[in-house]
Structure formats: C-alpha cells, structure tokens
Design a protein around this nucleic acid. Sequence first.
RNA 1: GCACCCGUAGCUCAGCUGGAUAGAGCGCCGGACUUCGAAUCCGUAGGUCGAAGGUUCGAAUCCUUCCGGGUGUGCCA
Length: 586
Amino acid sequence: MLLERYLESAGSEAIHEALRLDGPRPAMVRPTQDPQFGDFQVNGAMPLAKELKKPPRELAQPIAEILASLDAIEKAEVAGPGFINLHLAPSWIASQLTETLRDPARDGVPAVEEASKIIVDFSSPNIAKQMHVGHLRSTIIGDAIARILAFMGHQVIRDNHLGDWGTQFGLLIVGMREWGSEEALRSDPIAELERVYKLASERAAKDERLAESARAELAKLQAGDEDNRKLWEHFIEVSRRVLDEVYEELDVSFDVWLGESAYHDALPGVVEELLSRGIARQDEGAVCVFWDEIADAPKSLRKQKTPFIVQKKDSAFLYSTTDIATVLYRRDHFQADRALYVVDSRQALHFQQLFAVMKLLGVEMQLEHVGFGTVLGPDGKPLRTRDASGHVITLVSLLEESKQRARQRIDEGIAEGRLRVRPEEMDEVSRIVGIGAVKYADLRQNRLSDYQFDWDKMISFQGNAGPYLQYAYARCVSIFAKGGVDMEATAREATISLDAPAELVLGKHLLRFADAVYQAGATSQPHIICEHVYELARAFNGFYAECPVLDAEGGARDSRLGLTALTARQIRRGLGLVGIGVVDRM
RNA sequence: GCACCCGUAGCUCAGCUGGAUAGAGCGCCGGACUUCGAAUCCGUAGGUCGAAGGUUCGAAUCCUUCCGGGUGUGCCA
C-alpha cells in the first residue's frame, strides 16, 4: 500500500472533521527523523494557526484525537509547537505485511489509476564508435526509469535513438573504400570503423579534395544512392552486433531502435513549417529560431540570445531538426503522452530550446529532460575515456574488469571460508555481483550530481554498495534452504506479527516500499529505490543478528519466516527495478 | 557578457514541494563469530550545512548579495 498517501488523506480528513473548515487542507504528513517522535508527523495544524487565530497546539489536539482512533495508529500526540506525532500500531503494520506477503505479483505496490504512454529515450550511442564510460549513465539510468515506470503500470516504450546519420558517414564511406579492411570489419567492427574514421578525418583536414569527396558521398547517401546506402547499412549492421553484446551484458533492452536516420525524410517539412509559421527565419544563410523575437518564449532563452539553428547555411539539417521531427513522430505514431530524455545535463540548453519550439508548434506532449552529471575519476576531474597509454577505456573492458574484480574477491572469501559459491556458479555470480556493483555505485546517488568513479570504493564490497544488498538477499534465501522451508508456502500461509524491537524496525521499512517506488517514478530518481533497499537490508541484518528464525518457536517462527520471505522479495524486486540482479549463494 | 548547476563530517554522498537535537557509507577508535552466512552486527569520536542579509512561529531547504568551483553558449551531437 501507499502508506504516505493513506496517512495524508486520513490526516486531511481528520483536519476537516476536527476544525470544520470550508475546504480540504493538506495534512503535510512527513516521516519523522527521530524515532522518539514516532513514525510520522502531521504538520498541517501549524499553518492554520494564523488563519484561525488560535494556538497551533490547540488546533492539533482534536485532530490528534481523531487520528488516534484509527486502526493504523496506536498513538497520536501533540508535541512541540504543534506537531502531531503518529505512532503506527504494530498489529496494523503486521496485518498489512501479511497481506503483502500474499501478493507476490506486485509486492503491495498498486498500479497507477491512469496509465500514460511514456517514451524513454536513453543510451543513444553513435554508430561506428565504441561505447565508453560516458554512455554508461544514460544506459543504466534510463533502463532503471523505464523499469520503474513500467512496473507502476505505465505503458513504456524504450527507444534507442542511435546516432546513425550525419557528416561522419561521408568520411566513413570514403575512408572505407580507400583504406578499409573487410576482414577487420568482420572481426572487430567498431575498432576498424574508428581506425578508418580517424584516418579519414585527419586526411580531410589537410586535403580539401578528400573533404569535398566526403561531402559528395554523404550527399549521395542522403539522396538514396544504392552503393552508399548498402555500405551505410553494413556499418550499422556490424555496429549493432557489438552494441547488442554490451546491452546483453548490462541486461538492457529496447522496444524500438529509431535512430536519427529514421527521421531524415521528415526534416525539410519541419523547417518549412517553422518558417511558414514565423517561428524561424533565415539569417546568414541558416534557418534559426531567435528567442528574443518571440514574445512568449521563456525568459532565460530570451536573455541568452542563443539561436536554435535548424538548418545550416549549406542547407544540411542538424540534430535539432531531427529532434523536432522525433517529437512529432512520437506524438503522431505512438500517441505518446510523455517523453523522457535521459541525456547528459550539459545538453540542458538544447532541450530547453527544443521543448520551447515544440510548445510553439502546439505540441502538448509532456517533454522532460532527465539530466545527469558527469562521470569523474578518483582525482575529481572528468574521467578520461583513455588510459595512460592513450587506449580508449571501453565500456566492455570496464565491465570485464568489474567482473574480474568481483571474482577475485569471491575467491578470497571462499578461501577464508566466509563465502559460498559453487564452482559451476562462479561465472554467473561474478557477473551479477560485478555488473551490479558498477550499476549500484552509479544509481545510488542523485543523478544530477557528478559521479566519482572509483574502483576501490565500488568493489570494496562493504557498507552501502551493491554486494551488501545482494548479500542480505542471499542470507534470506539461505535461511529457507537451511531449514528446508518453501518460500512460496510461507508466503501463502504465514501470519506476520511484530513483537521484538528488531522485527518492528524491519516491518516498518517493509511497509514503505510502495512509497519509494512511486517517489522514484514520479521524480525519475532511481536512487530513491536504492536508498530504500539499502535501509531495508540494514534493518534485515539487524533483525538477523537479534532474532533467530529457524530456532524460534511456533507462531514466532512462521512470522519471522514471513518477514524473511518478504524481505527477500522486496530486495529482489527493488534491485530488479533498477536493473540489478541477485543470486541465492555468494 | 548571458544562462544554468554545485558548495553539507577528513573522503564519497543523502536530506532541499520549509518543520523538532542535520543523517549514511568509507576511514579512525573500541566491542561481537562453539549459535540461521562476520561482504555482517553493536558502540565512540567527527559539522559555524561556503559567507552575510532577508522572508517565516520555524530555513541546509525559499529570496537577495557576495566568495569559491563547474557547465553551456551561431551553423558538432
């Protein structure tokens, strides 16, 4: 259940009932930050003091009395300047948890009343270029957001908006014919494409004839020349194979792969429409939107005076043009309600301009730039995508290293008798732990802040890190294995009761899962789920230390098994929602 | 120049639709493995929330100014 939503509406009703006001007032329910003040506090009485000209504590008293009569609430007391501290009733929490235990399909998370159709635009690498750490954030943050929204019941379309069109293809076509090796293209496609591109662009900088020839080949490609078209398709095909491997490793998938090339035919129409509606005009041969000439443009755009260029003076189109066409397609073809762009924050201005143009065009889709910060190295400077010797640190090699480091740590743990992994499971466990550690390190913090990438911290495997959560899960599963108890049977039959302090602490965390999921979905912030799962794992580890499960008697044993089963499910679900896996033994 | 973002414990970060004595992890120090898995648990120390004003019953959170750091900014994406 959505606990906070329930308390908010209960609180709001209580205010209405107690004070007989003309309209509904917000209860302003917040979790307390100190357990001595209970579990939640209602702050809504204080702002009413001025309006009603009565001391806030006096207003709070009758509200508290009404709230105290609810089954959910054991105690409601007025405190401080006019807070109402709510102590949830353990028996009520327990009955809610028992209900959730019976709901393995949704783990107590309700589906949204009104589903939206949401495009999540993420990852979007360039064809013919190796993916590096810079692509990691968009890919895993976007994947997590798509998973969360889909689980909430929205209709999500995951779109990989590939950079598969543009000036680089002229150079690639010329370069490939001149210096390319078909064999190298087969064995290591991206490396070969990068080699050829680098060569071609270096030569073109010095040799105007080569540059001219590249432009000509690009024009032919865009005009539909069959040979060039085939070559281009070939580039894409071989690149796709490499990308697919990375995505498989990351357990990321897409519903559609509509790259920039998919919108090529629509671009002239976009510019025409902008011109004919007076949104854009010619300037120095280019077609631009000038914000200071548009009365209802956003203020900061008007002041910045940076034009939005949709066609270059050589009449070529830009990514801005493509992005406009893309929005229109998403509206007309998918009938999407929203589109989320999971793209580096440094492109904020571009999206601000894009969204402003769409508004001028009368597009009502809800467009949102889900930005994220830069990946920094341990020195606090933007992480170099090349190592000391100048080699590109590819995403593949980074993931490989993570798996190796995980494997090494597991080997150590086994040697010291702390960990248990069967030899035949070694590959899978080191993959899930290693990749999970990389993902968790990134997802656990607010996406907007820059993120410091540090192997030693990430793979330290202690404290708030991926393996901690996976370990807690393995502990849960291990209890069932050791006791020979079936987790599904427990879920069907056990009745939870909360008696020991550690049980109550755990139970309260378990009850907040749905809130965390909804909040993460509403704000596109996967770290909220990470934080919840971490707190849950902590609470479980505390419970584990305090409360024997298998050795407990009768009802207590069943109840603790139920708590353990629910914890396991919630960790698995929570991590699953951000794209991280779990293993039974590690 | 203009626009945007950031400044919280030694380090890495939560908290920012205003709510009580600002929280975690790492690191430091000290405890807990004959007991369901010690990648664990329990405890100690550590902060003028960059600075100064303002709004408010109440500010890390909102507003203003300043200091310090970063990003973007006419034909790349």
